[in-house]
Design a protein around this nucleic acid. Sequence first.
DNA 1: AGTTGATGTTACCAAGCGGTAACCTTAACG
DNA 2: CGTTAAGGTTACCGCTTGGTAACATCAACT
Lengths: 216, 216
Amino acid sequence: MKVVKRRNRQMTMERILRAMGDVMAERGTEKAGINAVAERAGVNKVLIYRYFGGWNGLLEAYVQRGFFLSMFNDKFLESVPDNLPAENRSKVWSEYTIQFLREFRARKPSQELIRWEMTHGETELARRLAEYRDRSYKNLVDKLAPYTDFDPIAITSLMVSAVTYMVLTSAQRDHIVDIDLRTEAGWERIETAIRRIYSSLNIALDRENAKKAEVK
Amino acid sequence: MKVVKRRNRQMTMERILRAMGDVMAERGTEKAGINAVAERAGVNKVLIYRYFGGWNGLLEAYVQRGFFLSMFNDKFLESVPDNLPAENRSKVWSEYTIQFLREFRARKPSQELIRWEMTHGETELARRLAEYRDRSYKNLVDKLAPYTDFDPIAITSLMVSAVTYMVLTSAQRDHIVDIDLRTEAGWERIETAIRRIYSSLNIALDRENAKKAEVK
DNA sequence: AGTTGATGTTACCAAGCGGTAACCTTAACG
DNA sequence: CGTTAAGGTTACCGCTTGGTAACATCAACT
């Protein structure tokens, strides 16, 4: 039987990191701070300085051990077959966007992390985190780029931005215009809109290609 | 000739409000605060409390006298002819989105206001501001709704969200994936993507309508 | 001229923040 | 057993924040 030692660095660090997530999720970006985390973890804040070297180190450690997006991208990438028929690509993109939407919605701490980033963009750390996500995201795009003529990077960046913003605001507002953000029905409207956009793009692209072929 | 009085409430309030915009634009959301504004305006902070009743009142006054989006919506709405041919509607929507993009990019204080809102969503004030924008936005949608089957509200909300998020991040990052946010070329890619999305939707909708007609 | 009320200033407060020095306390080791 | 170093705690610091009370000053009007 395992004895829980009272003096155990591993355990303490774990508790701090957990508290970090909790605090971010519960109290929001603004109130997140070393003091709040320490209090929440039931741990002396000095330990945070010792183990993580302060707020930045803590945040970094927190991100490193579980920032979901890069993992999510990698996982998604795996699930995509290598030789994907062109006509299915729009579906893959909309599936990616929608899965991202769902995962992001489900992860409060990740949302708050992004929110934090948005108000601390001048800091080196915030930039690095964004950069990190960007890379993993680029991997995905490189392998999946479908509508070559349609600047898939720009389009998907727009879609991901849209989803990001909507999820973030949903934590603060009940609705956008007449879209109810508290109900699944509201989010289904959004998901449907996403699918429609991608499928329309595909249709339009097909038509353009058909025209080109005709000219030849 | 007009004499500038040293004791002049109007003037002082004006200076405070200007300073408010400057501070928001320059130092960002985080550092914006009563103290910073007072210092910047070269005015004693007590006056802010007297004239505006504190931070909330100041913010509200600031917004009320010039929050651009509702005005922008109204202006745009005026410019749209009443009997708009259906085939031009996608163009109107993309024009709206793109003009919004440009205006929003040009207005640093407005950006910072939104950023502030994102981190203070729990407050009553933030909610009210959002609500205010929403109403003016809904007016627009009501009058313009084109693709009736395509849930134009959801689609345009997505697009506006996308633009909002991208502009906000552009203040902090040089690029998204390989889109250079510092150059006009980068933003043109985004504008093009927006146009493509709307026009594709139109094409897809046309095709669907054609099919329906065929069945009849 | 003198009262009065608006305008502007000084000085202060409590609370919260990030951060650190110095101190105990325990586990593990020879 | 006793030393040692890591784990954990106490108490403090300086700084900034939002907020207020009390005082000084000027302009206008009877």
